[in-house]
Amino acid sequence: MQWFDYAAPRSVAEAVSLLDGRPDARILAGGTDLLVQIRSRRRTCGLVVDGKRIPELNELSFDPAAGLTLGAAVPCYRIYGDRAVRSAYPSLAEVAGLIGGTAIQGRASIGGNLCNSAPSADAVPLLIALGAQCRLAGPGGGRTVAVEQFCTAPGRNLLGAGELLVSLRIPAPAPGFAAHYLRFIPRNEMDIAVAGAGVSLRIQDGVIREARVALASVAPVPLFARAAGEALAGKTPGPEAFHQAAEAARAAASPITDMRGTVEYRRHLCAVLTRRALEAAAREVH
């Protein structure tokens, strides 16, 4: 393992000033990606900036009107251990329990999952389906972007020099709203998604008013399949509508063939997982 410097700032401003002008610096939340990458020489890093002592990065609070504020360094175990999260966002609690094993979940964060920007990140399709927004801080001040715009390429995102993810903001669920994430892995645990589908539905008076679909592991970034969600709006939830959305998801995917699966197989899985996730979400509404 290479030598690196370590800093543990106490405020967002201090973190920004440490990061600014250090292109070799990386923020550490849980470290479950970063330290593994440094150890295996997949990433070199001159300065590790530990975000865990910054209050804003550790905030986890729910407001029935404003929704959920999820600090970038909040570990998974706090998310699924939080009563408000489990009640308002059961799908988020579930996905927090999907990342890694129990030990990893003690450190790994959803914010880190997003900033690592892997196409296979399990939390990100669900965040997109939930309509989550990223709150960033940088030398030029703060800005807010939608999660679906955050990742730009495998391992890359739109964080600029000196910029960091402070928190995620997830809207409060409206009546008739449900979300679900499903991934396909050859094993039953401890695996990277061959494909994944995060969906949300808002059903009112037996009609889908709004739907969002996002996919994992089938594009250079976690993919917002806008057309798949739009195909559902105004439809009655059921096999026909879900089939159409599934086909739209299949069409949106642009996977590659690698050790986890072939192009054909992954496209196929997009359709299967989208349909199954929609069925699960619809069941949750009723």
Binding site: P186, R187, N188, E189, M190, D191, I192, D258, M259, R260
Partner: peptide
């Protein structure tokens, strides 16, 4: 070898 880790080599775990 593209999967030279226990994550990607996929031996069965007790859950499988």
């Amino acid at each position: 070898m593209m999967n030279s880790s226990l994550l990607d080599y996929r031996m069965p775990t007790s859950l499988d």
